[in-house]
Design a protein around this nucleic acid. Sequence first.
DNA 1: CAAGTGCCTTTATC
DNA 2: AGATAAAGGCACT
Length: 300
Amino acid sequence: MVNERPIMAQLHLSLPFDLDFTLCCGQTFRWEKQDDWWYGTVGENVFKVRQNGDKLEFENASEAFVRRYFRFSDDLPEIFSQINKDKHMVKAIEQFKGLRILRQDPWECLISYICATYKNIAAIKRMLLHLSRKFGKEVVLDGYSFFTFPTPMKLAKATLENLRECELGYRVKYVSQTSKRILRNDYDLEHLKKATYDHAKEELLRFPGVGPKVADCVLLFSLEKLDAFPVDVWIRRAVLRHYSGSFPSEFVNTISRHKSLSEATYRRLNLFGRQYFGKYAGYAQEYLYHYERTQTRSRS
DNA sequence: CAAGTGCCTTTATC
DNA sequence: AGATAAAGGCACT
C-alpha cells in the first residue's frame, strides 16, 4: 500500500444514475464534495467520483468496487415499473430518477443510524465526522484529509466522556453498548445478509438504541433487504398526505394526533409500505422520502 | 432577539 | 396495550 498510484478510470452508465441525488438523499452521511469531485471513505479506503452525463469517472477504487457500492446491478427501470403504483410515485420518480440505494458497510450503517435518531441530517453528519476524526484512521487523497469509520474495537474502548465530545448526547450509551456487544461476541453483521428480513430485523432489534426504524434503515442500506420500508416523520407525512385512503379514518386520526409513532402504528405503516410497493419497497421509500422533503420545503 | 419547535426515534415508566 | 415523558444540542422561525 506504499506509494501506490491511484487508479483513474471511468465507466459507462447504461441505466439511470444520478450521483448527486444518490449521495445527497440522506442515506449516507460522510461524502464530501471538493471542487467537482465527491470524496468518500468506504472501509479503509478513500476514493473519489464524479459524473459526466452517462460517464462515471472514479479514482482510487476498482471498477468492480464502484459497481458494487453504487448497486449498478439494480435494474432501475424494472424497479420503477414495480413501484410506480400511483401518481405520487410517478412524480417522485420523474423528479429523482437515478437516485440509487447504496451498498453500505453494515457496521458503519448500524452506528450511523443509532446516531441518527431524532437528529437532522446536518447534525448527523457532524456527529459522524467527529467520531471518525477522533476514533478513525486518517487517509489522504489529493492533499485532503479523510478519516475511516472507527472499528468496533475503537468505539468499545472509548470512554463515554470521549464519545460525548462527539455531540452524541444521550446516544453515547447506545453506541458504546452496541460496540461492546459486537466486539464481545465477535458478532458478524454480514451473516444477516443471508437471513430473511424478519430474522435479520429481530437480530438487529436486540442492539441497544435500535428500534424498528433504525433496524429497517440498516436492513435496506447495508443488508440487501430492498423490501425494507423505514417509517420516519417524513414517510408518516407522506402517508397522511397521499395514502390516508388506505387506512381507516380512526387510524389516520391517531397518527395525526400523536407526535411520535407507537410500535403498533409503526408496524402498520411499515406493513402498508411493504405490501403496497412490493419487493422494492425500500426504493419506493427513498423516492417518497426525498419527494416529501422537497415538497414541504418549497411550500413554506 | 428570545423562546419555541423540530429533528430520518428509542427507551423507561406508568 | 397504550399513552407519555425524557433524552443533546443545534438550526430555524
